[in-house]
Nucleic acid binder design. Structure first.
Length: 274
DNA sequence: ACCCTTTTTCCTGCTT
DNA sequence: TAAGCAGGAAAAAGGG
């Protein structure tokens, strides 16, 4: 029953991957995800640069703000540096979103748990070697997989409603996103993290958004892992990809096998956008 | 309990 | 022949 991910995925991928996953997610979506908390056992001061970016991505997700609008490069720093930023630094670095980020990090620094009231993300708490989504943490700061969430408490989200409202974004409200990250976003994120994408998918034309699967089955298994579906195949994944044509998230690319192109409704993949 | 969106499964037929 | 591509159909999954 096991998918033997180790055999298919680990060898080619794990070794080259960094400590953590730049984007949120992690499989184990066993059942409904109630509420998720930030890594309580990992103080932001000790975050790696990747973890900082992951945190950024998650905060954006939580507030349903298009991550492509955030200048990630302004946060090219590790947790220690991040924690030394003051409110104005955040505003300078992220504009209005800085307020939200500041709230989040302040909460986290104080030992609080930034409460996620939506099942948008997952923290990496995986034991096995999921190459992409949750590359293992250096021993010592691995999230215990058995500890899903701890406190059923914490209610007031430091930066919830008001802040959320204050941030204008009338156009990018996600309505349905039952499973967290969408497939196309998953694909996009792999592309956007070349250092962690050991030949899974590659850009064919970066500016046009054309990319090609190099290891279709490996990507499918990764996707399946994320969805806790060990029987995912490229065949099935590609069907889902084809559904994106109609929605213009993807555009057809003639005759070229394993090649896809982001469409007008796909966001966050452009260079300038991030 | 029902509706909706996003896949997931399966399948037939066609193309490389 | 194997691996992809095209889509239709239907069901699964979850959130609303």
């Amino acid at each position: 029953m096991s998918i033997t991910p180790s055999a298919t995925l680990e060898s080619p991928l794990t070794s080259t991957w960094g400590p953590t996953n730049p984007y949120h997610d992690g499989p184990l979506v066993t059942s409904g995800y109630a509420s998720r908390l930030w890594p309580h056992d990992s103080q932001p001061h000790f975050w790696s640069k990747y973890q900082v970016w992951e945190w950024l991505q998650q905060v954006m997700d939580i507030h349903q703000i298009d991550a492509s609008s955030l200048p990630f490069q302004n946060f090219d720093m590790d947790g220690h540096q991040l924690c030394s930023l003051n409110y104005h630094d955040f505003i300078r670095a992220a504009g209005s979103v800085g307020h939200i980020l500041y709230n989040s990090i302040t909460e986290l620094k104080s030992g609080g748990q930034y409460h996620l009231d939506i099942g948008q993300l997952e923290l990496k708490h995986e034991t096995d070697l999921c190459p992409f989504p949750d590359v293992s943490y250096p021993s010592g700061e691995i999230y215990d997989p058995s500890v899903q969430s701890l406190a059923p408490n914490i209610s007031p989200t430091p930066s919830s409603p008001e802040i959320k409202r204050s941030f204008s974004r009338g156009h990018q409200v996600k309505k349905h996103n039952p499973r967290g990250t969408h497939l196309w976003e998953f694909i996009r994120d792999i592309l956007l993290n070349p250092e962690r994408n050991p030949g899974l998918i590659k850009w064919e034309d970066r500016t046009e958004g054309v990319f090609r699967f190099l290891k279709s089955e490996a990507v499918a298994q990764l996707w399946g892992k994320k969805k806790n579906n060990s029987s995912m195949t490229y065949e099935k994944l590609s069907r889902a990809m084809r559904y994106y044509y109609k929605r213009e998230i993807l555009e057809r690319v003639d005759g070229r096998r394993l090649v896809y192109k982001f469409g007008r409704n796909a966001r966050g993949w452009r260079d300038a956008e991030k």
